[in-house]
Amino acid sequence: MREKTNLLGYFYISPYIIGLLAFTLIPMAISLYLSFTDYNLLSSPRWIGGGNFSRMVSDDQFWQSVRVTFYYVFTAVPARLVFALAVAIALKELNFLKGFYRLVFYVPSLIGGSVAVAVIWVQLFSKDGVVNAFLNTLGFNIDFSWIGNPSTAIWTLVLLSAWQFGSAMLIFLAGLQNIPKDYYEAASVDGANAWRRFVRITLPMLSPIILFNVVMQTINGFLAFTPSYIVTEGGPMNSTLLYVLYLFRRAFQFSDMGYASAMAWVMLILISILTALIFSSSRSLVHYEGKGD
């Protein structure tokens, strides 16, 4: 009996294992090897042991990129999730113009990664851009460029990320649809108000989805690349140098593939630890309706 379920289980996940091997594990093994080498892509890799890792410790730009990325994750991710959940709930209650709103809030995620949006974003936040014009009409007197200023540039990226909460919102919406209406009706009959219904029904029922979104958004936050690549190019003065951008730069601009691979493994370990932490703390918070784990 045991063997039968084993075989069956593996049957279903076999495509994944094959693909994993071919397209992920083998490249990952190669990249692990490369992290101990000096490899400039144009000639063969040269073994240098822990050289890349020791260089990382004293590399200012590396630590700068770590700082910037942590700041980014811990501001952009909560912002995104809060907006996504709030708007998803609002939309569920709404019946008027629902389709319109769903589309409107989702469009930013659709176009977010494009060059055109990046260019627009730069213009919006530049010295004589729309944002300043708007703030000036409100009475503030803003005389600098948000995007050109090292202390404010990162906020433009955080805003860009928060603007794209649509994808998380969609996932929350789908999850919200899954909550049976009779639970709410039963609760209302029992006298629960909106807030209690939210806390006692919505949140727990939604908790697997919330967990999913938290994990995914956090990971995506750490791996964010395109915004800083296109919009700010890591500047000004490396104030928006996200980790993966620095990695990419080292790999391709400076032909330093070995070091970049080392950086990738450091990030991998970091995210694993963080995710493990999130999962273990979720055990008490997350409620599974079906066959749980």
């Binding site: 260019v119 730069v122 213009q123 530049s126 010295k127 600098f144 460029s145 995007i147 050109g148 200023n149 700010t232 500047g235 000004p236 003065m237």
Partner: peptide, 10 residues
């Protein structure tokens, strides 16, 4: 020009 102006010269 100051660096922030330079940054917006795309």
């Amino acid at each position: 020009p100051t660096p922030d102006i330079v940054a917006s010269i795309k």
